[in-house]
């Protein structure tokens, strides 16, 4: 009798006598059995295969992102370091260039200074030599004044008196005049 009502070939409109299908206790056992089988299978598949796999995928992606970010940070650090090294090189080169320029300038200045000093010294030496020569010439000239004066006195006396005067007397007289 139950078979007639729940065999699935039941005629619509006739099930008023039978139970409402979801409440029909005859249907409970097979549904529970198959639910246990299918849900058990689903739980096994999900907990053993699917969920660890998805967790693994998400974990890998997270690791990849973190790793990439770290690598990017490291590369930026490298770039910064390279930039700093470049700046340092440029600054060093600039400093060296300035030092070289300064050195050259100093050297040139020192050389020209030395040259100038040497020239001055030479000129001074020449000046001194000339002054000495002048002094010598003057001394000599002054020493010649006596003999010129003697000769002139001798000639004058001879012209006037016609006598050749005593040279020694004239010399004494000239010397006396000169020292005057």
């Amino acid at each position: 009798m139950a078979d007639d009502t729940h065999s699935g070939t039941q005629v619509p409109g006739e099930h008023g006598g039978g139970a409402f299908p979801p409440f029909d206790a005859n249907n409970f056992a097979p549904q529970l059995v198959w639910l246990a089988i299918t849900f058990g299978a689903l739980y096994f598949l999900m907990s053993r295969i699917a969920l660890p796999r998805v967790a693994n995928i998400l974990d890998n992606r997270q690791k990849k992102i973190t790793g990439d970010l770290d690598a990017a940070t490291a590369m930026r650090g490298q770039a910064d370091a390279a930039g700093a090294a470049y700046e340092k090189t440029v600054a060093d080169a600039k400093g060296r260039a300035q030092a070289t320029a300064q050195q050259t300038r100093d050297k040139v200045a020192a050389e020209s200074d030395a040259q100038r000093k040497a020239l001055e010294a030479e000129l001074n030496a020449k000046l001194e030599a000339a002054e000495q020569q002048i002094a010598a010439t003057k001394t000599q000239a002054m020493s010649n004044v006596g003999s010129i004066a003697q000769e002139a006195a001798e000639a004058i006396i001879r012209q006037i008196t016609g006598v050749t005067p005593d040279a020694a007397k004239i010399a004494a007289a000239v010397a006396a005049a000169k020292n005057g």
Binding site: A2, D3, H6, S7, G8, T9, Q10, F20, P21, P22, D24, N26, N27, A29, P30, Q31, V33, W34, L35, I37, T38, F39, A41, L42, L45
Partner: peptide
């Protein structure tokens, strides 16, 4: 909402029905 058995003419304890079929389809 009717439960229809597939391989037998009545619903037994572990009969494969349309409900079982759709549980398998869902899984």
């Amino acid at each position: 909402f009717n439960i229809v058995p597939f391989f037998s003419d009545h619903v037994g304890t572990a009969t494969f029905t349309n409900a079982s079929l759709f549980m398998v389809i869902v899984v």
